[in-house]
């Protein structure tokens, strides 16, 4: 079942300008993890904003969780069911304390107080924010702000999570931890995940990659299939993930290894 369906979507910020997105047709299934990648300015954030109806297409339609994003009566519900974490966390801070900020979406969704309290506590603990509950979100470090934004979406438990470079300021172990958490939500609870990312290691782990170039989808498929065509990736400003680069460099040195896309796969092959 598709939770996001975009058909023939074109969007311009200002009339007369080259559209930021051209004729986009794609879908995201329940429980699927999709990476959206591409050059700076290729339209990734615009696409994410269209998915949760912060923007509305000029041509074509988008249905998110079965609802037309262009229908003003549906917009609040869509944003609750498709939770987004923005590229810049300051854009998302709404409350005077960390705990209130994480609770904000739930309050609006009418979640009963005891359950809300429990979900907020869990999300705060899970994102390593314990002890910062009463701090002002604006007075946190960059990575701490990103954790607050992530905790908010985790507490909300939406059907779709849209992550717009949401872990760009996290240290490597926190980033890995969030990736694992999101993967679990996706695999075990059927939440659909759309990650906008420049991190090829992360992209390699997803079910499907979508490459945008100047507002158009120029490649789409499993990471492994896309990595078969490095020239095409490079055109879109992308690279092969390091484990795969290393596999190819080893093959060039006469070492027999498969074309591994993840560290684990490469290490296992070498240790056989």
């Amino acid at each position: 079942m598709a939770v996001i369906e975009a058909e023939g979507v074109t969007f311009s910020y200002n009339s007369g300008e080259t559209p930021a997105l051209h004729d986009i047709t794609m879908s995201v299934e329940k429980g699927e993890w999709v990476a959206v990648t591409g050059h700076n300015g290729s339209g990734k954030s615009t696409l994410a904003r269209l998915f949760n109806s912060l923007l509305v297409p000029q041509q074509g339609t988008i249905r998110t969780c079965g609802r037309n994003t262009a229908d003003p009566a549906e917009q609040v519900r869509i944003r609750r069911r498709a939770g987004m974490v923005f590229q810049h966390p300051d854009n998302q801070i709404v409350a005077p304390t960390v705990a209130d900020d994480v609770a904000f979406g739930l309050e609006n969704a009418g979640v009963p107080a005891p359950e809300m309290k429990q979900r907020v506590e869990h999300a705060i603990g899970r994102l390593g924010l314990t002890g910062l509950e009463d701090q002002e979100p604006h007075r946190l470090s960059g990575g701490q702000k990103q954790r607050v934004a992530l905790a908010g979406v985790l507490a909300l438990r939406p059907e779709v999570i849209l992550l717009d470079e949401a872990t760009s300021m996290l240290d490597p172990s926190a980033r890995e931890d969030v990736r694992r958490l999101m993967k679990t939500l996706c695999r075990e609870e059927g939440i659909a995940l759309v990650s906008v990312t420049h991190d090829m290691t992360e992209a390699a782990e997803t079910d499907r990659m979508i490459v945008l170039d100047q507002g158009r989808i120029t490649a789409e498929g499993s990471p492994r299939s896309l990595f078969q065509d490095p020239a095409r990736l490079e055109e879109a400003g992308l690279r092969l993930p390091v484990p795969l680069q290393l596999s190819l460099a080893l093959q060039a040195r006469g070492i027999q290894v498969p074309e591994a896309v993840s560290e684990e796969e490469l290490v296992n092959a070498l240790c056989r």
């Binding site: 591409g38 050059h39 700076n40 590229q87 960059g142 470079e165 760009s168 300021m169 420049h198 090829m200 490079e234 400003g237 992308l238 690279r239």
Partner: peptide
């Protein structure tokens, strides 16, 4: 430079 390459595409980095 505070995280100068965050948010840049791989080419840009």
């Amino acid at each position: 430079l505070d995280e100068p390459t965050a948010g840049l595409d791989p080419d840009g980095q």
